[in-house]
């Protein structure tokens, strides 16, 4: 049935966004770090996975990619996750000591630099053209089964979301998470208690970036073809909206927020083209996301599932 298929597609996108939101939540919700580089981690995961699992193809008209490894998909996903975590670590080493909004500026700029590299280094990434023919995991096996491939992928993505959720929930309530929360509330206190604050921030940054990389790999293997325009800063801002909407500090909230945002964006695709302003719908949709973000921050700054006591993580100091 066509509607069910569409719902599966929306569900897969929502799952990928949920992973992104989980990664963002350890940065912002748990540690109070303003990470504006999420799109870059997502991109590194996607491109690493894509490059590792495709052979060298001579398809480019303007530029030719000369690197390709044709490895199994699992290797690609693992490497994408690790490399994104590595990038998170590198970006964080330059900037993790900076105060909140300075960190935001540096991470945003770093993410744009990463996108620039992907865009320009065509020998590695096919540059501005799309990197095509990314293999789907177990495709030949699944097609022999009586289920659609989308259903399989939906279950795979949400299975990973569930595992990640449980892991992060556990980490957040464990000793590691408690230090992160202390840093979020007041890093001087954490420092006075003998915690190596910078180190914890670095770890938090790398872990969250890794999850975003995992999301990127899953995305690449689902959509077949990726290009640099998929990784604009607006993606980062969408994930921010999801985390704020769901409630910073709550992993269930992060997932809920991501699902709401994806549904908001995708559901309007079902509106027929004959309504007024149909051409402007994609933009009106994003305007609406902006409104949602501001309204949530005004009326319910703790988000849908956030803890009102903690209010907005990391912002309790100062004012």
């Amino acid at each position: 049935m066509a509607l069910l298929d569409l719902l599966l597609v929306v569900g897969i996108i929502a799952g990928v966004y949920s992973l992104l939101a989980i990664g963002m939540n350890i940065h912002w919700g748990d540690t109070g770090l303003l990470n504006f580089a999420h799109a870059a981690f997502f991109a590194v995961g996607a491109y690493t996975s894509a490059i590792l699992t495709t052979p060298v193809l001579e398809t480019g008209l303007l530029a030719e990619r000369v690197v390709g490894f044709d490895l199994p998909v699992v290797a690609g996903i693992a490497a994408g996750t690790v490399l994104a975590a590595g990038l998170g670590f590198v970006i964080a080493t330059t900037s993790v000591r900076l105060e909140g909004d300075y960190l935001a500026m540096v991470t945003l700029s770093s993410a744009e630099l990463v996108r620039l590299v992907i865009h320009n280094e065509a020998w590695l990434t096919t540059g501005a053209q799309t990197l095509k023919n990314i293999p789907r995991p177990l495709e030949s096996t699944v097609t022999t089964l009586p289920v659609s491939y989308d259903l399989f992928y939906f279950l795979l993505v949400w299975g990973l979301v569930a595992v990640t959720y449980l892991l992060f929930e556990r980490m957040s309530s464990g000793p590691f998470g408690r230090v992160l929360h202390a840093i979020r509330e007041n890093d001087d206190v954490a420092l006075a208690l003998g915690k190596d604050v910078s180190r914890f921030k670095l770890k938090s940054f790398a872990i969250g970036a890794g999850v975003a990389g995992l999301a990127g790999s899953l995305w690449a293997h689902y959509v077949y073809a990726i290009s640099p325009v998929m990784f604009l800063p607006s993606l980062t801002f969408l994930i921010w909206t999801a985390v704020i909407l769901g409630g910073a500090g709550s992993y269930a909230g992060a997932i809920l927020g991501a699902v709401v945002i994806v549904v908001l964006r995708q559901v309007t695709r079902f509106i027929p083209g004959s309504v007024p302003f149909a051409d402007q719908l994609p933009y009106i949709r994003l305007m609406f996301v902006g409104v949602v973000l501001v309204v949530v921050l005004y009326y319910r700054p703790e988000g849908l599932l956030g803890n009102a006591q903690r209010l907005q993580a990391g912002t309790s100091e100062g004012e």
Binding site: D101, T241, L286, M287, G290, L293, V294, G314
Partner: peptide, 22 residues
């Protein structure tokens, strides 16, 4: 706080940029 305002301004940015596109 400055950080909340920064995030609010992201929402405003989204709105304005897409209004321009529309």
């Amino acid at each position: 706080s400055p950080v909340t305002l920064l995030i609010v301004s992201i929402g405003v940015a989204f709105f304005i940029r897409n209004l321009i596109r529309a």
